[in-house]
């Protein structure tokens, strides 16, 4: 590739990642608002269950391990990308995807169980806060998985292009960010919820 084009692409990478970091900061503020609301509304159980009564630490720990592992496999995928190894890249992306789907499955089953027992978001402010905070994170994971599918489809169609490289880099940032938010959720919602 010609030098001007290379510089152009580098600049595009720089602009895009700067913009994406800023977007992640805004997402951070969004989650912060939801966390703040959750914490304030945590005691408002309106005669319904408290956090200690409904959260299962083993399940939350399982979710955490799954998600952390998926962050690791995502990292492996990006390493493969660096080495232009398409096969490894797709494999590790696939593993990440499977782990992400497992995470969502467990989370949705937790939600379904709660709703089935009559403890939906309609029962109290505490439950509203819980479902919305954890649900928003889950929705972000869902969008991430959708993104992942599209990326894999593009990889199959076009192989590793500069554009795909850039977009996968952003995906990695997104996925690690969601992992970080999950660590906070695990701590504030589940760990502290069971302890209180």
């Amino acid at each position: 590739m010609s030098k001007p084009r290379l510089l152009e692409q580098k600049f595009l990478d720089y602009k895009t990642s700067t913009g994406f970091w800023l977007y992640l900061m805004t997402d951070c503020v969004l989650f912060a608002s939801l966390f703040a609301t959750y914490i304030v509304l945590h005691p408002a159980t309106a005669g319904g269950p408290t956090s200690g009564e409904i959260f299962s630490l083993p399940m939350a720990l399982t979710e955490t391990i799954i998600l952390l592992t998926s962050s690791f496999t995502c990292g492996l995928a990006l390493l493969a990308l660096r080495q232009n190894n398409l096969k490894q890249l797709v494999i590790w992306l696939a593993v990440t995807y499977v782990l992400g789907v497992s995470f969502l499955t467990i989370e949705l089953s937790e939600f379904a169980a709660l709703v089935g027992d009559g403890h939906s978001w309609q029962q109290s402010a505490f439950l509203s806060g819980f479902f919305t905070l954890v649900g928003t994170h889950g929705f972000h994971i869902f969008i991430g998985l959708l993104w992942l599918l599209v990326m894999v489809a593009v990889l199959f169609k076009k192989g590793i292009t500069l554009k795909v490289k850039r977009q996968l880099g952003l995906f990695g940032l997104f996925w690690h960010f969601l992992d970080l938010v999950w660590v906070f959720i695990f701590t504030v919602v589940y760990l502290m919820g069971v302890a209180s």
């Binding site: 609301t37 304030v40 509304l41 408002a44 159980t45 309106a46 978001w121 309609q122 029962q123 109290s124 402010a125 505490f126 509203s128 806060g129 479902f131 919305t132």
Partner: peptide, 13 residues
């Protein structure tokens, strides 16, 4: 969907 973030009742604030 019937959440209670800011309602007067059910713990809303």
């Amino acid at each position: 969907i019937g959440t209670h973030f800011f309602t007067s009742d059910m713990g809303g604030n």
